[in-house]
């Protein structure tokens, strides 16, 4: 790797004041599972890293607070998988976590790192998008809360200001009769960059048949970043979830998706599988809602 300097802050306050002054040319480093391989491969260069890893006391936690799930930015994927605080309606987090990388990666990759990498290869982003996650961005002057939906501008570009650090991800409480699910397709069964992945979060009316709200997000919809499939969501809202409705939703998804082809897979194939995932994940959500 080309050389860089690492600043090790003594506290969160110290980190924030460092970012206030030097944030412009600084790359924030959680635990590096995304950044370090990219540095090694010369896909990116950095001159200055801010090492957050010593701030686990402040930034590594999973807690329920007034119904919302609050996840510190340094929480690892394994932490999520092992946390008793994540209720059944948020099974999508465990679905994604268990298919994330491999055990070694899960033990190190952080939620904050995942979100800020802002790439379609980051599996947690579609999940958090579908959960309407909110991000707490802290600077030495203030804190602001931004919906994840509005945070990712483009591939590996976010609306984080240069003096800010992502400190917490908040997952708002889901209403009752909610369920969620996730799936991922790759060329083998594990340790893959997703060809397609999808997270669905569903809330049904008390009749357990009509959709109150559906959130559907994928690693890619019409660009190279994770997004919500809003047309599909709009169609499903208020609709009875019959097999015809699901089929129609799949058709809408096909139109909404504009997926590129590369040497890994064609856009057509990715869209075909996305449609199948939509049907299956809606079904899985319904089973999970009714099951509980």
């Amino acid at each position: 790797m080309a050389g860089f300097d690492i600043y090790v802050p003594t506290s969160l306050a110290d980190a924030l004041s460092y970012m206030e002054e030097f944030g412009e040319g600084t790359t924030v480093l959680a635990r590096g599972t995304d950044l370090v391989p990219r540095l090694k491969r010369r896909q990116v260069t950095a001159s200055n890293l801010l090492d957050l890893s010593g701030l686990e006391l402040d930034l590594r936690y999973v807690r329920v607070d007034g119904g919302s799930l609050r996840i510190g930015a340094l929480t690892t994927v394994s932490d999520l998988l092992e946390s008793p605080s994540i209720g059944k309606e948020l099974e999508v987090i465990r679905d994604a976590g268990s298919k994330f990388g491999d055990p070694q990666i899960r033990n190190v990759a952080t939620v904050g790192g995942n979100v800020c990498s802002a790439s379609s290869s980051e599996d947690l982003i579609p999940v958090l998008l579908a959960l309407d996650a909110k991000l707490k961005l802290s600077s030495s002057k203030k804190e602001r809360v931004v919906p994840l939906k509005e945070f990712i501008l483009g591939k590996r570009t976010t609306f984080r200001k240069s003096g800010e650090i992502l400190t917490e991800v908040e997952v708002p409480q889901l209403p009752s009769n909610s369920g969620s699910a996730y799936d991922k397709l790759g060329r083998r069964n594990t340790l893959i960059i997703a060809l397609v992945n999808m997270a669905v979060v569903l809330t049904l009316e008390p009749d357990l048949e009509t959709v109150l709200k559906a959130s559907v997000s994928l690693n890619r919809v019409s660009g190279r970043i994770p997004q919500r499939a809003t047309l599909v969501e709009g169609y499903l809202a208020g609709r009875r979830l019959t097999s015809d409705a699901v089929a129609a939703a799949q058709g809408i998804l096909a139109n909404e998706l504009s997926l590129g082809s590369d040497f890994r897979a064609s856009g057509e194939y990715r869209a075909d599988v996305a449609k199948v995932f939509l049907g299956r994940l809606l079904g899985r959500c319904v089973s999970r809602i009714r099951g509980s």
Partner: peptide, 12 residues
């Protein structure tokens, strides 16, 4: 790169 050239893992 092994990130993009896939050989079977124990899950396969």
């Amino acid at each position: 790169s092994l990130a993009d050239y896939y050989i079977p893992t124990s899950m396969d």
